[in-house]
Simulated scan of single mutants.
Amino acid sequence: MTQAIEATGLVKDFGATRAVDGIDLSVPAGTIYGVLGPNGAGKTTTLRMLLGIIDPDAGHRTLLGESVPLRAAHLVGYLPEERGLYPAMTPREAIAFMGALRGLPLAEGRRRADDLLDAHDLGHAARKPIRTLSKGMAQTVQLLGTLVHRPRLIVLDEPFSGLDALNQGRLEALIRAQAADGVTVLFSTHVIAHAERLCERIAIIAGGRVRFEGAVEEARGRLRPQVRLGTRAADGAWCAALPAGTLLEGGVWRFELPDDGIEPLLKALIAGGAGIDTLSIERPGLHDAFVAIAGEAVARDMAKPAPAEVAA
Results as ranks from 00 to 15, higher is better:
T2Q: 14
A4D: 05
E6G: 05
E6K: 09
G9P: 05
L10Q: 06
V11Q: 07
D13Y: 11
D13L: 13
I32E: 01
G42E: 07
I54S: 14
R61G: 00
T62H: 09
G65W: 06
E81K: 10
E82D: 15
G84K: 03
R92W: 10
G99S: 08
L104K: 06
P105C: 06
R110A: 02
R112C: 08
R112I: 07
D114K: 12
D114Y: 01
A125V: 12
A126P: 04
T132Y: 00
Q139E: 12
L143V: 14
L147K: 02
R150A: 15
V155D: 04
L171T: 14
E172G: 02
A177G: 12
V191P: 00
A193R: 15
H194D: 14
C199A: 14
I202Q: 05
G207I: 06
G207A: 07
E213R: 10
A219T: 10
R220F: 03
R222G: 15
Q226Y: 00
Q226W: 05
R228W: 11
T231Q: 09
T246K: 04
L247S: 13
V252S: 01
P258A: 10
D259P: 01
D259M: 07
D260L: 08
D277Y: 02
D288S: 07
F290I: 00
E296C: 00
M302S: 07
A312S: 13
